[in-house]
Every structure is written in structure tokens, then in C-alpha cells.
């Protein structure tokens, strides 16, 4: 028996331009299809959207709350505004707050030149930090023989947690604590090196937008190159395999 899926077609406008979408898609998906740039940080193609960073905030006519584009589904007749001065200001503020919280001193960071936080600051013109730096001190976990976790450089985007549980299926990494004390831990806050669940797949290294998770070995300051597309590729292949079954 063949099942006929009915695809709902939706029309909306993005920045005044009428666009078509299918139901279930997010604003971010549709914007991408139409070559509209919305900055994102916690979002990564291939991972389940999470809505943690709020960098993708957009305006919707008639709604005085801003909504995150990465997890907000499109609706018929929606009028989305992705870019104006207010949004730019808010996005810069979000970045600025990230920079004030933990130690993001690019010049001595392994991810210098390969960091999404750094490049977004550049793209969005966040060139000053006006608030005092907080820099809580976190212990660097270098106990694992292949990876280092440095919460001092973490922005709590949750990518590593999601890739570890949703793609790898290990769920070694998670977030513990709240607010400024929140940090990435492995298993039940044990040394990563002792983890019985970690499969040493290194997916967390590839997805981490900053220098917070790093591979050991011949990688020093400014040398943490990453293959981020690999996750989207994996997710796609897995989807394809599932469809074949």
C-alpha cells in the first residue's frame, strides 16, 4: 500500500519578500533556502535544534516577543523580519555577554582563527566588551588521553551534548549546574579519562564552536581546525539508511 503524504504548503514573507515553505519547517530552514543570513551559534546542521544561544532571534509582525528562528516553525501568513537595528543590537549584546562571562582570550586559544564565536563577533561587529569580565575559574579536564575539556572557553551551546547523545548514542557529556556555574561534565561528573561510556569518537571536538573541547596531540594555539559538516553528513546518511529499511 502506498501512503500518500500530504505536504502542507505555506506562504509567508521574510523581510518583505514572499516565500513558500512546507509545514514543519523552521524559520531558519526557510531563510536558508532563500539565501537569507540569520546568525546562529548553538544550531548545527545535523543536530536536533535546541534554542540555547538566542542569536537567531527574529521579529514577527504582530508579535511583540522575539522568537528564535532555529526552533520556531513557519506559519501561514507570517511576516518575518530577520535583520534590523534592534536585532543587530540584541545579537551584539548576546555575543558581548558570552565574551564577558568566560575566558575567551583568542590570542592564546587553540581555536584562534577557527572559532565560530570569534568569527560571529567579527561579522556582527561586536568589537567592544563594555561590561566587566567575570571569568569564573573552571578546572581544565585533561585526563582523557585524546581530548581536553576546558569549560573556561565554553559557551554552553550544548552541541557536544547533543552530538554525543543523539548521533553517537553514548551520552557521555552533559551539562551540570546552573547559571554561571553551568559546565560540561562527563558521566556523573567524573574525570573524562575514566569514562566507561565515551567511545572516543571525537564528534564533540568537531562540533564545538570554540576552543572548549580540543583534541590532544600536535595541536597548539591557533591550530584547532574542525570538520563541522561531518555531522550533517552523518545525520543525512543515517536518515537515508532508515528510509531504505
Amino acid at each position: 500500500m502506498t501512503e500518500i503524504q500530504s505536504v502542507q504548503i505555506i506562504t509567508l514573507t521574510i523581510d518583505g519578500k514572499p516565500v513558500g515553505a512546507s509545514g514543519g519547517e523552521t524559520i531558519l530552514d526557510v531563510a536558508k533556502q532563500n539565501q537569507v543570513f540569520i546568525p546562529t551559534l548553538c544550531h548545527l546542521e545535523g543536530l536536533i535544534p535546541y534554542g540555547a544561544c538566542r542569536l537567531c532571534l527574529v521579529e514577527i509582525k504582530g508579535n511583540n516577543k522575539l522568537v528564535p528562528a532555529c526552533i520556531t516553525k513557519v506559519a501561514e501568513g507570517m511576516e518575518v523580519i530577520t535583520n534590523n537595528e534592534r536585532l543587530q543590537r540584541f545579537r551584539r549584546w548576546i555575543l558581548e555577554l558570552l565574551f564577558t562571562e568566560r575566558n575567551h582570550v583568542c590570542s592564546v586559544c587553540v581555536a584562534n582563527g577557527f572559532c565560530e564565536l570569534q568569527s560571529l563577533a567579527e561579522v556582527l561587529g561586536m568589537d567592544h566588551v563594555r561590561l566587566p569580565y567575570l571569568h569564573p575559574k573552571f578546572v581544565v579536564d585533561a585526563t582523557h588521553d585524546r581530548f581536553v575539556s576546558d569549560n573556561n572557553r565554553c559557551i554552553l551551546c550544548g552541541r557536544c551534548v547533543r552530538v554525543c547523545s543523539d548521533i553517537e548514542g553514548a551520552h557521555t557529556l552533559d551539562i551540570m549546574g546552573r547559571g554561571i556555574k553551568a559546565r560540561i561534565v562527563s558521566d556523573l561528573d567524573d574525570d573524562w579519562g575514566n569514562s566507561p561510556t565515551c567511545t572516543r569518537c571525537s564528534k564533540c571536538v568537531q562540533v564545538c564552536p570554540t576552543g572548549a573541547i580540543k583534541e590532544k596531540g600536535r595541536r597548539s594555539v591557533g591550530e584547532k581546525f574542525k570538520h563541522r559538516d561531518v555531522i550533517a553528513h552523518l545525520a543525512e546518511m543515517r536518515e537515508a539508511a532508515r528510509e531504505e529499511d
Binding site: 590570542s107 592564546v108 587553540v110 581544565v140
Partner: peptide, 14 residues
């Protein structure tokens, strides 16, 4: 203190 050894050359050079 608390930083990984491989950051030291760059850090100290500053």
C-alpha cells in the same frame, strides 16, 4: 595556573 602546557609558549610570549 590551571592552563594546559601547550598554551604556555604563546601565553608567556605575551
Amino acid at each position: 595556573e590551571g592552563r594546559p602546557y601547550y598554551e604556555m609558549p604563546s601565553l608567556m610570549a605575551r
